[in-house]
Design a protein around this nucleic acid. Structure first.
Length: 477
RNA sequence: GUGCCCGUGGCGCAACGGUAGCGCAAGGGACUUUUAAUCCCUGGGUUGUGGGUUCGAAUCCCACCGGGCACACCA
Protein backbone atom coordinates (compact mmCIF):
# COMPACT_ATOMS: atom_id res chain seq x y z
CA UNK A 1 0.00 0.00 0.00
CA UNK A 2 2.90 2.32 0.65
CA UNK A 3 4.19 1.56 -2.79
CA UNK A 4 0.80 2.35 -4.26
CA UNK A 5 0.88 5.73 -2.57
CA UNK A 6 4.41 6.41 -3.77
CA UNK A 7 3.52 5.38 -7.30
CA UNK A 8 0.44 7.56 -7.31
CA UNK A 9 2.50 10.46 -5.99
CA UNK A 10 5.35 10.07 -8.45
CA UNK A 11 4.01 9.10 -11.78
CA UNK A 12 1.28 7.70 -13.98
CA UNK A 13 -1.46 5.76 -12.22
CA UNK A 14 -0.55 2.11 -11.57
CA UNK A 15 -3.69 0.97 -13.38
CA UNK A 16 -2.92 1.52 -17.00
CA UNK A 17 -4.98 1.35 -20.15
CA UNK A 18 -4.47 -0.13 -23.53
CA UNK A 19 -1.16 -1.81 -24.25
CA UNK A 20 -0.34 -2.78 -27.82
CA UNK A 21 1.01 -6.33 -27.82
CA UNK A 22 2.79 -7.86 -30.75
CA UNK A 23 3.12 -11.37 -29.34
CA UNK A 24 2.16 -13.59 -26.45
CA UNK A 25 4.75 -15.32 -24.32
CA UNK A 26 3.68 -18.63 -25.82
CA UNK A 27 4.17 -17.40 -29.38
CA UNK A 28 7.69 -16.25 -28.62
CA UNK A 29 8.61 -19.53 -26.96
CA UNK A 30 7.02 -21.64 -29.69
CA UNK A 31 8.56 -19.67 -32.58
CA UNK A 32 11.79 -18.72 -30.88
CA UNK A 33 14.32 -19.42 -33.69
CA UNK A 34 12.27 -17.36 -36.10
CA UNK A 35 11.73 -14.47 -33.68
CA UNK A 36 15.20 -14.30 -32.14
CA UNK A 37 16.55 -10.77 -32.51
CA UNK A 38 13.26 -9.14 -33.37
CA UNK A 39 11.50 -6.44 -31.38
CA UNK A 40 8.40 -7.46 -29.47
CA UNK A 41 5.86 -6.02 -27.08
CA UNK A 42 4.41 -8.40 -24.55
CA UNK A 43 2.36 -8.14 -21.39
CA UNK A 44 1.68 -10.31 -18.40
CA UNK A 45 2.10 -10.90 -14.69
CA UNK A 46 5.47 -10.92 -12.96
CA UNK A 47 5.96 -14.28 -11.23
CA UNK A 48 9.51 -13.82 -9.99
CA UNK A 49 12.17 -11.14 -9.86
CA UNK A 50 15.88 -11.74 -9.43
CA UNK A 51 17.70 -8.49 -8.83
CA UNK A 52 21.44 -8.38 -9.18
CA UNK A 53 22.39 -4.78 -8.96
CA UNK A 54 22.76 -3.47 -12.46
CA UNK A 55 21.10 -6.48 -13.99
CA UNK A 56 17.67 -7.91 -13.19
CA UNK A 57 15.93 -11.07 -14.33
CA UNK A 58 12.20 -11.59 -14.04
CA UNK A 59 9.68 -14.16 -15.20
CA UNK A 60 6.61 -12.91 -17.01
CA UNK A 61 3.54 -15.16 -17.05
CA UNK A 62 1.13 -14.74 -19.90
CA UNK A 63 -1.58 -17.16 -20.94
CA UNK A 64 -0.17 -19.86 -18.73
CA UNK A 65 3.28 -19.63 -20.30
CA UNK A 66 6.35 -18.01 -18.82
CA UNK A 67 9.14 -16.11 -20.45
CA UNK A 68 12.18 -14.56 -18.84
CA UNK A 69 12.76 -10.83 -18.92
CA UNK A 70 16.36 -9.64 -18.96
CA UNK A 71 16.91 -6.06 -17.83
CA UNK A 72 20.26 -4.23 -18.00
CA UNK A 73 20.93 -0.72 -16.94
CA UNK A 74 23.12 -0.32 -20.05
CA UNK A 75 20.23 -1.05 -22.41
CA UNK A 76 17.46 0.63 -20.46
CA UNK A 77 19.21 3.68 -19.05
CA UNK A 78 19.38 4.69 -15.39
CA UNK A 79 15.93 6.26 -15.23
CA UNK A 80 14.00 3.39 -16.80
CA UNK A 81 16.02 0.81 -14.88
CA UNK A 82 15.18 2.61 -11.67
CA UNK A 83 11.48 1.95 -12.25
CA UNK A 84 12.12 -1.72 -11.62
CA UNK A 85 12.57 -0.97 -7.93
CA UNK A 86 8.85 -0.33 -7.60
CA UNK A 87 7.79 -3.60 -9.21
CA UNK A 88 6.62 -6.56 -7.17
CA UNK A 89 5.85 -10.14 -7.90
CA UNK A 90 2.23 -10.22 -9.01
CA UNK A 91 2.30 -6.91 -10.86
CA UNK A 92 1.03 -6.83 -14.42
CA UNK A 93 3.45 -5.11 -16.78
CA UNK A 94 3.84 -4.29 -20.42
CA UNK A 95 7.27 -4.77 -21.91
CA UNK A 96 9.07 -3.73 -25.07
CA UNK A 97 12.29 -5.46 -25.98
CA UNK A 98 14.27 -7.82 -28.17
CA UNK A 99 13.96 -11.58 -28.27
CA UNK A 100 17.31 -13.07 -27.21
CA UNK A 101 19.06 -15.86 -25.42
CA UNK A 102 21.07 -15.31 -22.26
CA UNK A 103 24.53 -16.71 -21.77
CA UNK A 104 23.05 -19.86 -20.33
CA UNK A 105 20.80 -20.24 -23.35
CA UNK A 106 17.57 -19.24 -21.65
CA UNK A 107 14.96 -17.84 -24.03
CA UNK A 108 14.38 -14.25 -22.91
CA UNK A 109 13.28 -10.80 -23.88
CA UNK A 110 15.88 -8.11 -23.29
CA UNK A 111 13.86 -5.23 -22.00
CA UNK A 112 14.20 -1.76 -23.47
CA UNK A 113 11.10 -0.36 -21.82
CA UNK A 114 8.74 -1.54 -19.12
CA UNK A 115 5.43 -0.11 -18.02
CA UNK A 116 3.38 -0.97 -14.95
CA UNK A 117 -0.15 -1.79 -16.12
CA UNK A 118 -1.65 -3.03 -12.87
CA UNK A 119 -0.26 -2.98 -9.37
CA UNK A 120 -0.86 -6.08 -7.27
CA UNK A 121 -1.59 -5.16 -3.67
CA UNK A 122 -1.69 -8.67 -2.28
CA UNK A 123 1.23 -11.07 -2.29
CA UNK A 124 0.94 -14.24 -4.33
CA UNK A 125 1.34 -17.57 -2.53
CA UNK A 126 4.69 -19.19 -1.98
CA UNK A 127 6.54 -19.63 -5.20
CA UNK A 128 7.28 -23.30 -5.41
CA UNK A 129 4.61 -24.90 -3.27
CA UNK A 130 1.86 -22.77 -4.70
CA UNK A 131 -1.59 -22.68 -3.12
CA UNK A 132 -2.35 -26.08 -1.59
CA UNK A 133 -5.22 -25.35 0.76
CA UNK A 134 -8.17 -26.77 -1.14
CA UNK A 135 -10.60 -24.37 0.45
CA UNK A 136 -8.59 -21.34 -0.65
CA UNK A 137 -8.07 -22.82 -4.10
CA UNK A 138 -11.85 -22.94 -4.63
CA UNK A 139 -12.69 -19.71 -2.85
CA UNK A 140 -9.93 -17.77 -4.60
CA UNK A 141 -9.88 -19.57 -7.92
CA UNK A 142 -8.28 -16.49 -9.50
CA UNK A 143 -5.18 -17.12 -7.38
CA UNK A 144 -5.32 -20.86 -8.00
CA UNK A 145 -5.34 -20.20 -11.73
CA UNK A 146 -2.32 -17.92 -11.47
CA UNK A 147 -0.05 -20.07 -9.35
CA UNK A 148 -1.01 -23.71 -9.82
CA UNK A 149 0.08 -25.16 -13.13
CA UNK A 150 -2.48 -27.49 -14.65
CA UNK A 151 -5.58 -25.84 -13.21
CA UNK A 152 -5.81 -23.61 -16.22
CA UNK A 153 -5.40 -26.59 -18.55
CA UNK A 154 -8.43 -28.33 -17.03
CA UNK A 155 -10.66 -25.40 -17.87
CA UNK A 156 -9.21 -25.05 -21.34
CA UNK A 157 -10.03 -28.74 -21.82
CA UNK A 158 -13.53 -28.14 -20.50
CA UNK A 159 -14.08 -25.39 -23.03
CA UNK A 160 -12.82 -27.66 -25.80
CA UNK A 161 -15.15 -30.43 -24.66
CA UNK A 162 -18.21 -28.18 -24.70
CA UNK A 163 -17.22 -26.77 -28.10
CA UNK A 164 -16.76 -30.33 -29.39
CA UNK A 165 -20.20 -31.39 -28.14
CA UNK A 166 -21.77 -28.39 -29.83
CA UNK A 167 -19.90 -29.03 -33.08
CA UNK A 168 -20.72 -32.75 -33.06
CA UNK A 169 -24.44 -32.13 -32.67
CA UNK A 170 -24.64 -29.12 -34.95
CA UNK A 171 -22.89 -30.98 -37.74
CA UNK A 172 -25.48 -33.73 -37.43
CA UNK A 173 -28.30 -31.27 -37.97
CA UNK A 174 -29.35 -30.65 -34.37
CA UNK A 175 -30.66 -27.22 -33.51
CA UNK A 176 -29.37 -25.59 -30.35
CA UNK A 177 -32.13 -24.05 -28.25
CA UNK A 178 -32.62 -22.43 -24.87
CA UNK A 179 -35.52 -23.23 -22.58
CA UNK A 180 -36.53 -21.66 -19.26
CA UNK A 181 -34.48 -22.07 -16.13
CA UNK A 182 -37.24 -20.49 -14.05
CA UNK A 183 -40.01 -23.08 -14.08
CA UNK A 184 -43.52 -22.91 -12.62
CA UNK A 185 -43.37 -26.72 -12.46
CA UNK A 186 -39.97 -28.42 -12.28
CA UNK A 187 -39.87 -31.61 -14.30
CA UNK A 188 -37.80 -34.07 -16.25
CA UNK A 189 -35.99 -35.68 -13.32
CA UNK A 190 -36.43 -37.02 -9.84
CA UNK A 191 -34.86 -34.30 -7.77
CA UNK A 192 -35.60 -31.65 -5.21
CA UNK A 193 -35.67 -28.16 -6.73
CA UNK A 194 -34.52 -24.79 -5.52
CA UNK A 195 -37.40 -22.43 -4.96
CA UNK A 196 -37.22 -18.75 -5.84
CA UNK A 197 -39.71 -15.93 -6.02
CA UNK A 198 -40.87 -13.61 -8.76
CA UNK A 199 -41.81 -10.30 -7.17
CA UNK A 200 -43.87 -8.69 -9.94
CA UNK A 201 -45.99 -11.80 -10.40
CA UNK A 202 -45.85 -12.55 -6.67
CA UNK A 203 -45.34 -16.23 -7.30
CA UNK A 204 -42.84 -18.89 -6.42
CA UNK A 205 -40.83 -20.35 -9.25
CA UNK A 206 -38.48 -23.31 -9.33
CA UNK A 207 -35.01 -23.45 -10.78
CA UNK A 208 -35.11 -26.14 -13.42
CA UNK A 209 -33.93 -29.63 -12.54
CA UNK A 210 -33.84 -30.65 -16.21
CA UNK A 211 -34.91 -29.14 -19.53
CA UNK A 212 -36.55 -32.36 -20.73
CA UNK A 213 -40.22 -31.43 -20.74
CA UNK A 214 -39.60 -28.17 -22.61
CA UNK A 215 -37.45 -29.84 -25.24
CA UNK A 216 -40.19 -32.41 -25.83
CA UNK A 217 -42.67 -29.58 -26.35
CA UNK A 218 -40.36 -28.47 -29.16
CA UNK A 219 -40.65 -31.93 -30.73
CA UNK A 220 -44.41 -31.40 -30.63
CA UNK A 221 -43.86 -28.04 -32.32
CA UNK A 222 -41.98 -29.62 -35.18
CA UNK A 223 -38.33 -29.17 -34.33
CA UNK A 224 -37.14 -32.70 -35.06
CA UNK A 225 -33.60 -32.51 -33.76
CA UNK A 226 -32.84 -30.22 -30.84
CA UNK A 227 -30.32 -29.93 -28.06
CA UNK A 228 -29.59 -27.67 -25.14
CA UNK A 229 -26.41 -27.21 -23.14
CA UNK A 230 -26.95 -25.60 -19.78
CA UNK A 231 -27.16 -25.69 -16.05
CA UNK A 232 -29.50 -27.81 -13.99
CA UNK A 233 -30.09 -27.03 -10.33
CA UNK A 234 -30.69 -29.71 -7.75
CA UNK A 235 -31.24 -29.05 -4.11
CA UNK A 236 -29.25 -32.02 -2.90
CA UNK A 237 -26.06 -32.99 -1.20
CA UNK A 238 -22.62 -31.97 -2.37
CA UNK A 239 -19.99 -34.58 -3.06
CA UNK A 240 -17.01 -35.27 -5.30
CA UNK A 241 -19.52 -36.14 -8.01
CA UNK A 242 -22.33 -33.66 -7.23
CA UNK A 243 -22.52 -29.89 -7.38
CA UNK A 244 -25.89 -28.18 -6.76
CA UNK A 245 -25.65 -26.57 -10.16
CA UNK A 246 -24.17 -28.65 -12.91
CA UNK A 247 -24.03 -28.66 -16.67
CA UNK A 248 -25.90 -31.10 -18.85
CA UNK A 249 -26.52 -31.50 -22.52
CA UNK A 250 -29.88 -32.89 -23.54
CA UNK A 251 -30.60 -34.12 -27.05
CA UNK A 252 -33.89 -35.12 -28.71
CA UNK A 253 -34.36 -36.67 -32.11
CA UNK A 254 -37.78 -37.33 -33.63
CA UNK A 255 -38.40 -40.67 -35.33
CA UNK A 256 -35.41 -42.18 -33.50
CA UNK A 257 -35.34 -44.49 -30.51
CA UNK A 258 -33.08 -45.59 -27.67
CA UNK A 259 -30.83 -47.63 -29.99
CA UNK A 260 -30.15 -44.58 -32.13
CA UNK A 261 -29.40 -42.54 -29.04
CA UNK A 262 -26.93 -45.15 -27.78
CA UNK A 263 -25.04 -44.96 -31.03
CA UNK A 264 -25.11 -41.17 -30.83
CA UNK A 265 -23.84 -41.31 -27.25
CA UNK A 266 -20.85 -43.54 -27.87
CA UNK A 267 -19.90 -41.64 -30.99
CA UNK A 268 -20.19 -38.33 -29.16
CA UNK A 269 -18.03 -39.51 -26.28
CA UNK A 270 -15.40 -40.84 -28.67
CA UNK A 271 -15.44 -37.64 -30.71
CA UNK A 272 -15.14 -35.35 -27.69
CA UNK A 273 -12.40 -37.50 -26.16
CA UNK A 274 -10.43 -37.36 -29.39
CA UNK A 275 -10.86 -33.59 -29.66
CA UNK A 276 -9.78 -33.00 -26.06
CA UNK A 277 -7.16 -35.68 -25.43
CA UNK A 278 -6.18 -36.72 -28.93
CA UNK A 279 -7.48 -40.27 -28.64
CA UNK A 280 -10.33 -42.47 -27.46
CA UNK A 281 -8.35 -44.30 -24.80
CA UNK A 282 -8.01 -42.33 -21.60
CA UNK A 283 -6.47 -42.90 -18.19
CA UNK A 284 -8.48 -42.00 -15.13
CA UNK A 285 -6.63 -42.10 -11.79
CA UNK A 286 -4.39 -44.83 -13.14
CA UNK A 287 -7.14 -46.87 -14.76
CA UNK A 288 -7.10 -47.28 -18.52
CA UNK A 289 -10.52 -46.68 -20.04
CA UNK A 290 -11.26 -47.40 -23.67
CA UNK A 291 -14.05 -45.21 -25.04
CA UNK A 292 -13.81 -46.59 -28.56
CA UNK A 293 -17.28 -47.52 -29.89
CA UNK A 294 -19.21 -49.69 -29.88
CA UNK A 295 -19.81 -50.17 -26.17
CA UNK A 296 -21.46 -53.36 -24.95
CA UNK A 297 -25.16 -53.38 -24.09
CA UNK A 298 -26.26 -55.20 -20.97
CA UNK A 299 -29.76 -55.36 -19.56
CA UNK A 300 -30.20 -54.41 -15.95
CA UNK A 301 -31.49 -57.91 -15.22
CA UNK A 302 -28.41 -59.49 -16.84
CA UNK A 303 -26.12 -57.09 -15.00
CA UNK A 304 -27.65 -57.92 -11.63
CA UNK A 305 -27.47 -61.64 -12.42
CA UNK A 306 -23.84 -61.35 -13.45
CA UNK A 307 -22.61 -59.42 -10.42
CA UNK A 308 -24.92 -60.73 -7.68
CA UNK A 309 -26.04 -64.13 -8.88
CA UNK A 310 -29.68 -63.14 -8.41
CA UNK A 311 -31.79 -63.99 -11.46
CA UNK A 312 -34.76 -61.63 -11.65
CA UNK A 313 -36.24 -63.62 -14.52
CA UNK A 314 -37.01 -66.23 -11.87
CA UNK A 315 -38.58 -63.68 -9.54
CA UNK A 316 -42.26 -62.98 -10.07
CA UNK A 317 -43.50 -61.12 -7.00
CA UNK A 318 -42.52 -58.02 -5.09
CA UNK A 319 -42.13 -60.12 -1.96
CA UNK A 320 -39.66 -62.50 -3.61
CA UNK A 321 -37.71 -59.53 -4.92
CA UNK A 322 -37.46 -57.93 -1.48
CA UNK A 323 -36.31 -61.23 -0.01
CA UNK A 324 -33.62 -61.52 -2.66
CA UNK A 325 -32.39 -58.00 -1.85
CA UNK A 326 -32.26 -58.77 1.87
CA UNK A 327 -30.27 -61.93 1.17
CA UNK A 328 -27.61 -59.75 -0.50
CA UNK A 329 -27.63 -57.18 2.29
CA UNK A 330 -29.47 -54.50 0.33
CA UNK A 331 -32.04 -52.60 2.36
CA UNK A 332 -35.24 -51.85 0.52
CA UNK A 333 -38.49 -50.21 1.45
CA UNK A 334 -41.24 -52.55 2.64
CA UNK A 335 -43.46 -51.29 -0.18
CA UNK A 336 -40.75 -51.63 -2.83
CA UNK A 337 -41.93 -53.26 -6.01
CA UNK A 338 -39.98 -55.83 -8.00
CA UNK A 339 -38.76 -53.16 -10.41
CA UNK A 340 -37.64 -50.83 -7.65
CA UNK A 341 -35.77 -53.63 -5.94
CA UNK A 342 -34.03 -54.53 -9.19
CA UNK A 343 -32.92 -50.92 -9.64
CA UNK A 344 -31.74 -50.68 -6.03
CA UNK A 345 -29.72 -53.87 -6.24
CA UNK A 346 -28.21 -52.65 -9.47
CA UNK A 347 -27.20 -49.30 -8.00
CA UNK A 348 -25.75 -50.75 -4.87
CA UNK A 349 -24.07 -53.92 -6.07
CA UNK A 350 -23.40 -53.51 -9.78
CA UNK A 351 -22.53 -49.85 -10.49
CA UNK A 352 -19.09 -49.90 -8.85
CA UNK A 353 -18.01 -52.72 -11.19
CA UNK A 354 -18.84 -50.87 -14.40
CA UNK A 355 -15.47 -49.33 -15.14
CA UNK A 356 -15.21 -49.77 -18.90
CA UNK A 357 -18.02 -48.13 -20.87
CA UNK A 358 -21.22 -50.16 -20.94
CA UNK A 359 -24.84 -49.36 -21.70
CA UNK A 360 -27.24 -50.68 -19.11
CA UNK A 361 -30.61 -51.13 -20.83
CA UNK A 362 -34.20 -52.12 -19.98
CA UNK A 363 -35.01 -50.13 -16.84
CA UNK A 364 -38.08 -50.91 -14.73
CA UNK A 365 -41.04 -48.70 -15.53
CA UNK A 366 -41.39 -47.67 -11.86
CA UNK A 367 -38.13 -45.73 -11.96
CA UNK A 368 -38.58 -44.36 -15.47
CA UNK A 369 -41.71 -42.22 -15.54
CA UNK A 370 -40.93 -40.52 -18.86
CA UNK A 371 -39.70 -43.49 -20.89
CA UNK A 372 -41.63 -45.61 -23.36
CA UNK A 373 -42.46 -49.17 -22.37
CA UNK A 374 -40.91 -52.05 -24.21
CA UNK A 375 -43.30 -53.69 -26.64
CA UNK A 376 -42.54 -57.19 -25.39
CA UNK A 377 -42.45 -56.36 -21.66
CA UNK A 378 -44.59 -53.51 -20.30
CA UNK A 379 -42.84 -53.73 -16.93
CA UNK A 380 -39.64 -52.49 -18.55
CA UNK A 381 -38.82 -49.34 -20.48
CA UNK A 382 -36.70 -48.76 -23.52
CA UNK A 383 -34.19 -46.81 -21.49
CA UNK A 384 -30.41 -46.89 -21.21
CA UNK A 385 -27.69 -45.42 -19.08
CA UNK A 386 -24.03 -45.62 -20.00
CA UNK A 387 -21.65 -46.25 -17.12
CA UNK A 388 -17.98 -45.35 -17.10
CA UNK A 389 -15.68 -45.67 -14.11
CA UNK A 390 -18.68 -46.73 -12.03
CA UNK A 391 -20.45 -43.44 -12.74
CA UNK A 392 -23.66 -42.87 -14.55
CA UNK A 393 -22.54 -40.44 -17.24
CA UNK A 394 -25.73 -40.15 -19.27
CA UNK A 395 -29.33 -41.24 -19.46
CA UNK A 396 -31.54 -41.78 -22.45
CA UNK A 397 -34.58 -43.54 -23.75
CA UNK A 398 -37.28 -43.89 -26.30
CA UNK A 399 -39.57 -41.10 -25.23
CA UNK A 400 -43.02 -41.86 -23.92
CA UNK A 401 -45.44 -40.09 -26.27
CA UNK A 402 -48.72 -41.69 -25.20
CA UNK A 403 -50.52 -38.97 -23.19
CA UNK A 404 -52.76 -41.47 -21.44
CA UNK A 405 -49.86 -43.61 -20.23
CA UNK A 406 -47.95 -40.45 -19.30
CA UNK A 407 -50.85 -39.24 -17.19
CA UNK A 408 -50.94 -42.61 -15.43
CA UNK A 409 -47.21 -42.34 -14.72
CA UNK A 410 -47.62 -38.84 -13.30
CA UNK A 411 -50.43 -40.12 -11.07
CA UNK A 412 -48.13 -42.88 -9.77
CA UNK A 413 -45.54 -40.18 -9.07
CA UNK A 414 -48.08 -38.06 -7.23
CA UNK A 415 -48.87 -41.05 -5.02
CA UNK A 416 -45.19 -41.37 -4.19
CA UNK A 417 -45.06 -37.67 -3.49
CA UNK A 418 -48.00 -37.93 -1.15
CA UNK A 419 -46.19 -40.79 0.54
CA UNK A 420 -43.30 -38.45 1.31
CA UNK A 421 -41.06 -38.79 -1.73
CA UNK A 422 -40.02 -35.19 -2.33
CA UNK A 423 -38.21 -36.18 -5.47
CA UNK A 424 -41.22 -37.61 -7.25
CA UNK A 425 -42.52 -35.72 -10.27
CA UNK A 426 -45.23 -33.10 -10.11
CA UNK A 427 -48.19 -33.16 -12.43
CA UNK A 428 -47.61 -31.02 -15.51
CA UNK A 429 -50.91 -30.52 -17.31
CA UNK A 430 -49.46 -28.35 -20.03
CA UNK A 431 -46.94 -31.03 -20.89
CA UNK A 432 -49.75 -33.56 -21.09
CA UNK A 433 -51.67 -31.23 -23.37
CA UNK A 434 -48.64 -31.05 -25.61
CA UNK A 435 -48.53 -34.84 -25.78
CA UNK A 436 -52.24 -34.80 -26.61
CA UNK A 437 -51.48 -32.50 -29.53
CA UNK A 438 -49.08 -35.26 -30.53
CA UNK A 439 -45.36 -35.77 -30.08
CA UNK A 440 -43.58 -37.79 -32.74
CA UNK A 441 -41.84 -40.93 -31.57
CA UNK A 442 -38.40 -39.84 -30.47
CA UNK A 443 -35.22 -40.76 -28.74
CA UNK A 444 -33.78 -38.56 -26.00
CA UNK A 445 -30.46 -38.29 -24.24
CA UNK A 446 -28.94 -36.35 -21.36
CA UNK A 447 -25.22 -36.24 -20.62
CA UNK A 448 -23.53 -34.94 -17.50
CA UNK A 449 -20.92 -32.60 -18.90
CA UNK A 450 -19.03 -32.18 -15.63
CA UNK A 451 -18.49 -35.91 -15.22
CA UNK A 452 -17.42 -36.21 -18.83
CA UNK A 453 -14.87 -33.46 -18.29
CA UNK A 454 -13.68 -35.14 -15.09
CA UNK A 455 -12.96 -38.30 -17.08
CA UNK A 456 -11.17 -36.44 -19.85
CA UNK A 457 -9.03 -34.35 -17.50
CA UNK A 458 -8.32 -37.11 -14.95
CA UNK A 459 -9.95 -35.00 -12.22
CA UNK A 460 -11.09 -36.94 -9.14
CA UNK A 461 -13.51 -34.27 -7.89
CA UNK A 462 -16.27 -32.44 -9.72
CA UNK A 463 -14.97 -29.30 -8.02
CA UNK A 464 -11.80 -29.56 -10.05
CA UNK A 465 -13.78 -29.03 -13.26
CA UNK A 466 -16.09 -26.27 -11.99
CA UNK A 467 -14.46 -22.86 -11.84
CA UNK A 468 -16.37 -21.66 -8.83
CA UNK A 469 -17.78 -24.66 -6.99
CA UNK A 470 -20.42 -24.10 -4.37
CA UNK A 471 -19.04 -23.13 -0.96
CA UNK A 472 -20.55 -21.85 2.24
CA UNK A 473 -20.03 -18.12 2.40
CA UNK A 474 -17.31 -17.06 4.74
CA UNK A 475 -16.24 -13.73 6.19
CA UNK A 476 -13.25 -12.28 4.46
CA UNK A 477 -10.23 -11.37 6.52
C1' G B 1 -27.60 -35.33 7.96
C1' U B 2 -23.77 -39.08 10.30
C1' G B 3 -18.63 -40.65 11.05
C1' C B 4 -13.33 -39.75 10.65
C1' C B 5 -9.58 -36.02 9.81
C1' C B 6 -7.88 -30.86 9.42
C1' G B 7 -7.65 -25.25 10.81
C1' U B 8 -0.38 -22.01 13.54
C1' G B 9 2.17 -14.67 10.20
C1' G B 10 0.00 -13.31 3.00
C1' C B 11 1.52 -18.63 1.28
C1' G B 12 4.02 -23.65 2.41
C1' C B 13 5.26 -26.02 6.87
C1' A B 14 7.48 -27.04 12.29
C1' A B 15 6.70 -27.07 17.51
C1' C B 16 2.03 -31.88 19.99
C1' G B 17 1.66 -29.86 28.15
C1' G B 18 6.79 -25.69 29.63
C1' U B 19 9.72 -18.63 26.33
C1' A B 20 5.61 -19.99 18.90
C1' G B 21 10.09 -21.32 14.98
C1' C B 22 11.78 -22.16 9.64
C1' G B 23 11.36 -21.18 4.30
C1' C B 24 9.08 -18.14 0.55
C1' A B 25 6.90 -13.35 0.18
C1' A B 26 7.65 -8.12 2.39
C1' G B 27 11.19 -3.71 4.09
C1' G B 28 16.73 -2.00 4.08
C1' G B 29 21.78 -2.98 2.02
C1' A B 30 25.74 -5.53 -1.51
C1' C B 31 26.01 -7.59 -6.41
C1' U B 32 26.21 -6.47 -14.74
C1' U B 33 23.94 -13.51 -17.12
C1' U B 34 20.31 -15.27 -12.99
C1' U B 35 16.55 -18.99 -13.27
C1' A B 36 14.29 -22.19 -5.85
C1' A B 37 20.19 -16.59 -7.55
C1' U B 38 23.52 -15.61 -3.37
C1' C B 39 25.16 -12.85 1.10
C1' C B 40 24.11 -9.35 5.51
C1' C B 41 20.22 -6.87 8.41
C1' U B 42 14.74 -5.86 9.79
C1' G B 43 9.52 -6.12 10.67
C1' G B 44 5.19 -9.38 10.92
C1' G B 45 1.30 -14.46 14.58
C1' U B 46 -3.71 -12.82 21.61
C1' U B 47 -2.14 -20.57 16.94
C1' G B 48 -10.49 -20.45 13.31
C1' U B 49 -14.16 -18.62 17.51
C1' G B 50 -16.01 -19.25 22.52
C1' G B 51 -15.77 -21.92 27.01
C1' G B 52 -13.29 -25.57 30.28
C1' U B 53 -9.12 -28.68 32.65
C1' U B 54 -4.10 -27.22 34.43
C1' C B 55 0.80 -23.71 38.24
C1' G B 56 1.14 -23.42 32.77
C1' A B 57 -2.68 -24.92 26.55
C1' A B 58 -1.09 -24.13 19.55
C1' U B 59 -0.85 -28.95 22.19
C1' C B 60 -5.89 -32.13 26.49
C1' C B 61 -11.70 -31.76 26.84
C1' C B 62 -16.59 -29.48 25.13
C1' A B 63 -19.43 -26.41 21.83
C1' C B 64 -19.64 -23.54 17.52
C1' C B 65 -17.65 -21.82 12.53
C1' G B 66 -15.15 -23.26 7.97
C1' G B 67 -12.98 -27.16 4.99
C1' G B 68 -11.58 -32.29 3.19
C1' C B 69 -12.76 -37.50 2.73
C1' A B 70 -16.25 -41.49 3.33
C1' C B 71 -21.27 -42.82 3.98
C1' A B 72 -26.29 -41.21 3.34
C1' C B 73 -29.04 -38.49 -0.22
C1' C B 74 -28.71 -38.17 -5.43
C1' A B 75 -29.53 -39.94 -12.46
Amino acid sequence: MDKRRRLLANGPPPYGGRFERTHTAGEILDRFPELEGSSVRIAGRLRSIRRQGKVTFADLQDGGRRIQLFCRVNTMGEAAYGLLDDLDIGDIVGVAGQVMRTRTGQESVEVTGIELLTKSLRPLPEKWHGLKDVELRYRQRYVDLIVNPGVRDVFVARSKAVAAIRRFLTERGFLEVETPMLNPIPGGANARPFITHHNALDMDLYMRIAPELYLKRLLVGGFDKVFEIGKNFRNEGISTKHNPEYTAVEVYEAYADARDMMRLTEELFAYVAAEVTGGTVITFQGTRIDLTPPWPRLSMTEAVARYTGVDFDAIATDEQARAAARSKGVEVDKQATRGKVLAEMFEELVEPHLIQPVFIVDYPVEVSPLAKRKDDDPGLTDRFEPYINGWEVANGFSELNDPVDQRERFLRQLEQRAAGDEEAHMMDEDFLRALEVGMPPAGGLGIGVDRLVMLLTDSPSIRDVILFPHMRPRDLV
